[in-house]
Simulated assay, not measured.
Amino acid sequence: MKNTQYWLVKSEPFKYSWDKFNEDGRTFWDGVRNYQARNNLKAMKEGDLVLFYHSNEGKHVVGVAKVVKEFYQDPTTPDPNWVVVDLAPVEPLKSPVTLEQIKAEESLKDISLVRQGRLSVMPLKATEFDKILEMGS
């Protein structure tokens, strides 16, 4: 049996919101133009769980998604260096978990969201993922 990996992806709500994601039911995660974030997309496996974070406006985790298709060429660019994965919504958090709450939580002080604020796709440890879910329940 495969081990589930955990991730966090960021989207500015005016570009692609959690509500729009739920309306669509599935999307490819495009527009990643950072090599570290791209490598994280390439490491995602079908069934992995993903926290959906609204960046810039709101700055909070709003829901859980899952990887439904592993990486392939980003259809929005001819450059083969860039890839996407397909994500589908799983469930919203009962209450959004803010960046301030995450920064205030000692067990989350080392996550990339805090340490590498500009990274748009980042791995999480299972304990970090579970803690954020707990904070949002």
Score class of each variant (00 low, 15 high):
53 Y>E: 06
123 P>W: 06
101 Q>G: 08
46 E>M: 15
95 S>L: 09
67 V>S: 01
51 L>V: 11
128 E>L: 13
83 V>D: 09
97 V>R: 15
136 G>E: 08
58 G>M: 04
78 P>E: 11
8 L>V: 14
118 R>C: 03
28 F>E: 04
121 V>N: 06
34 N>C: 04
75 P>V: 14
9 V>R: 05
17 S>C: 02
96 P>T: 13
6 Y>T: 06
91 E>G: 11
60 H>Q: 13
64 V>E: 05
86 D>P: 01
113 L>W: 14
107 S>Q: 13
64 V>L: 11
48 D>I: 13
85 V>Q: 05
130 D>K: 09
100 E>P: 05
77 T>S: 14
8 L>S: 04
85 V>D: 03
71 F>W: 00
114 V>C: 15
47 G>Q: 07
90 V>F: 07
55 S>N: 05
128 E>W: 01
78 P>D: 15
102 I>S: 03
28 F>G: 02
85 V>T: 03
33 R>Q: 06
94 K>E: 14
69 K>D: 04
118 R>G: 00
47 G>N: 09
104 A>V: 03
65 A>E: 01
83 V>P: 00
102 I>H: 07
89 P>S: 12
1 M>Q: 10
72 Y>A: 00
18 W>H: 15
11 S>K: 08
18 W>P: 03
66 K>A: 14
125 K>H: 08
125 K>L: 15
8 L>K: 13
103 K>A: 06
39 N>E: 02
70 E>M: 02
85 V>L: 14
71 F>L: 00
17 S>K: 14
135 M>G: 03
39 N>T: 02
29 W>V: 05
1 M>A: 13
120 S>T: 12
69 K>N: 01
5 Q>E: 10
118 R>N: 04
101 Q>C: 10
58 G>Y: 11
82 W>G: 03
134 E>Y: 12
84 V>Y: 05
118 R>E: 05
47 G>I: 11
53 Y>K: 11
24 D>I: 08
96 P>M: 15
84 V>T: 06
78 P>I: 08
35 Y>T: 12
87 L>Y: 07
45 K>V: 02
132 I>E: 04
57 E>M: 10
111 I>H: 09
87 L>G: 04
131 K>R: 14
76 T>G: 06
26 R>G: 12
31 G>C: 06
81 N>H: 14
23 E>V: 10
30 D>V: 01
24 D>G: 07
24 D>T: 06
31 G>L: 06
20 K>T: 08
130 D>V: 14
108 L>T: 01
36 Q>R: 02
59 K>R: 12
27 T>H: 03
14 F>N: 07
42 K>L: 06
103 K>P: 08
103 K>D: 09
6 Y>L: 10
111 I>A: 12
58 G>D: 13
73 Q>D: 12
54 H>T: 12
80 P>M: 06
11 S>R: 10
39 N>G: 06
112 S>I: 07
38 R>H: 11
57 E>I: 13
110 D>F: 01
32 V>C: 03
41 L>V: 04
122 M>E: 09
103 K>G: 11
10 K>Q: 09
83 V>F: 10
80 P>S: 11
84 V>D: 09
84 V>C: 09
51 L>K: 04
104 A>K: 15
22 N>V: 02
5 Q>D: 13
24 D>Y: 10
103 K>C: 05
45 K>T: 04
